[in-house]
Structure formats: structure tokens, C-alpha cells
Computed example of a mutant assay.
Amino acid sequence: MKKFKWLTAVTALSLTLAACGGDDADTNGTDGDADSGESISWQMGHLAAEDHIWHQTAEKFAELVNEKTEGQIEIDIYPNNQLGGETDVLNDIRAGNVELLISGETMQNWAPKAALLGVPYAFRDSEHMTNVIEGEIGREIEEEIVEKVGVTPLFYMERAPRNLTSNEPINTPDDLSGFRMRVPNVPIFMDAWNEAGANPQVMDFNEVFTGLQQGVIHGQENPVDLIHSGGLYEVQDYVNLTEHVYSWIYMVIGNEALEGLSDELREAVLEASEEAQAYGADLFVEEIENYHNLLEELGMTFNDDVDQDAFREAMEPAIQDSLTEEQFELFERILEVE
């Protein structure tokens, strides 16, 4: 019930802004008359592969929407960036060409508060993150997304925490001296790990295995699903539980597409969203446990002796320098949430 009230509040804000002209997106509404009983066809894009839980959850959401609208709304899903990258699809939603997308911190290009979806050590654990998402700060982030991006979050999905892999256990920042590691092309990641004492370097993920195998780098950081899918268990011995990034991602819909629905259809979409979120949460728990067990079976050791407080303290100066004043104030407020 708490999650449904949260979802309803965000949706109400979306409709209010649209009615008042607060949405700066240039959109053309839905394909079909939402009040006439004619069919409505929506397109959804995302970056994950078909076997990923995001796609499975998206399929469940589409099935539920179709069922609850008695076939009036059909959703075609395009995984693997078939509709383009997140920024491209967001622009298409704003232009009225696409309706739905799975997106996260990329939305900071319009809504600066969305950057907090991927800041190192903003969240202590999954429970802390959930309390933030479903509390006042989460609503602030979502309100800015609705107003400035032109999309409404329907539901969210938790991501697995990012952990550092290596061939020797790493417990504190002192162990990072001379440690060459790969990071994605995310400036705050580069700055944070450099501040912690490592030698980070940007590298495409498809080059990481070879880089580790040849000793170009000594380690990298990623969630367990990517550690497994990249075969890194063959060239890395330890998963050090730094858990430096807890994050989530939204299923978003264009404000105009949502506004164009009748009250009955909108309620059906909201109900489908609530059920899809619960479905995705169950899949997430199963996936994390499964990958953890698989990596152990494949020879990796999970090192839980990591001093996360020491890493958090070491990275904070870089985090403060990378964020705007408003973003850092939000970061500090997040840390205060119980």
C-alpha cells in the first residue's frame, strides 16, 4: 500500500503539471483515442538483453497492462537498445514518438537530482535506499523528473550493488596503492577511486577480461551479474564487498501518454505497475542469490572484511567536488535518512 500511494502521488503530480503546461516536452499523445475503446499501441525501449530481469519485468508489465485494460493497450518491447540509447529514447519520448523506457541516472541531463541514483556511498544498504526512494527525497527526485524530463516514473527496480574484484583481498583504501583498475566512463567513479588511492582508467567492458588476463589492469568494479556474464571469475579471485554503489532504475512513461488515458485506463496502468514492481523485486532477490552462488562455485571468494566506512570517507572529497552544491546537499540529506 505504501508503494501504491507513492506511485499515485507521482502520477497525480504528472497530470497536474501537464494540465498546467508545466511539462516542457513536445509530445503528441497516444496512438488511438483513450476514451473511445480504440486500441492504443505503445513502444518501450531498454538497454538490457532478453534474459535480464529488467526485460522479464517489462514483459510482465506489458502482459498485466494488456490484461487489465482488456486488450485495449498493447506494449511492444525493444531490448538491447534497439530504439537507441537512453538519451535518444528520452528525446523520442519528449517528441511523442515512443512512450516507455527503463532509465536511471541518465535523466540527470535534464533533472540534476537524478544524478543521486548512481553516487558512490549515497546508500548504506538496500533498506536505506528503499526508504529514500519511497520517502520525501525520492518524491523530490521523481517530481523533478516529471517536470524537467517530461516522463513519469511508474515503478522502480533495484540494481545489484557494485563491488570491487581483484586477485588479492582488498580491505581498506591502503590496499589500493599501485592498484590499476577499470572504471566505466563515469567521471564521478574515476574521481572517487582516484581519491581512494587506486589508479583508475576508463575501459570498455568488452576489453576488461583481456585487460585483466594480460595484467594491464589488476581489478574492476561491477555488480555480480556483470562479473558473471563477463567471465571475470576466470581471471579474478576475489569479490570484495565494497558495495560502493547501491542504485535503482525506473520504468518511465511520457507525461502526455499517461495524461491521454481515461481515468479507468490510467488506474489499470497504475495497478499493473504496482504488480510489476513486486514481480521484479522477487526476481531481483533470486538473481542476486543465484549469481552469488554461481561465482562461489566457479572459484571466487566473497571478501566481507572490507572497511566500507574507510572507503566512504576516502571518496567523499571527490564526491563533493563532482556534485553541484544542490546535489551535494541532497547527498547529505540522504545520509541522514534512517
Rank of each mutant, 00 (worst) to 15 (best):
A268K: 13
S36I: 06
N80T: 10
N109E: 09
I334P: 04
L176Y: 04
E259M: 09
E127S: 02
S36W: 06
N97C: 01
L335E: 13
L261A: 05
F205H: 14
T87P: 04
R139K: 13
H52I: 09
Y246D: 03
M190G: 05
G254S: 06
T301A: 08
G22R: 09
R180D: 07
G254I: 05
H292T: 15
Y246I: 01
K60E: 13
Y121L: 06
L335Y: 00
H292G: 08
L90I: 15
D76T: 14
E144F: 08
M107A: 07
G104A: 12
L226A: 13
V208T: 14
S177Y: 06
D31H: 11
D191Q: 14
L295N: 07
E67H: 10
E86P: 05
M1T: 14
L100Q: 08
I170C: 03
N303S: 12
V183D: 09
V269I: 13
H218E: 14
R266V: 10
E63R: 12
L298W: 11
E127G: 03
F209W: 14
D321H: 04
A122E: 05
N240L: 07
K113S: 12
M315E: 07
Y156T: 08
L226K: 14
G104K: 02
F61S: 06
V186G: 00
A318N: 03
V337W: 01
I253G: 11
A49V: 09
P153R: 11
Y291V: 07
T324E: 04
H244D: 12
A48K: 13
D35M: 07
Q220S: 15
C20K: 15
V208Q: 07
I141R: 04
V151D: 06
S14V: 00
D305Y: 04
H244L: 05
M44A: 14
M251V: 11
D321I: 00
A12K: 12
D204V: 02
G21Q: 07
S177C: 04
L241R: 14
M315D: 07
G299D: 09
T11N: 11
E275W: 05
P153V: 06
M203L: 15
D51N: 15
G37N: 09
A48V: 05
L101V: 03
F61I: 06
A12F: 04
A196G: 06
L295F: 07
W248A: 06
I73A: 08
E296P: 00
E274Q: 12
F61H: 11
S273W: 09
A62E: 08
N194D: 15
A257V: 00
T210L: 10
E325S: 12
E274A: 15
F61P: 05
M203H: 04
I102D: 01
E143P: 03
S229D: 10
Y246R: 06
P161M: 07
D263H: 08
G138A: 11
R182V: 00
F123I: 05
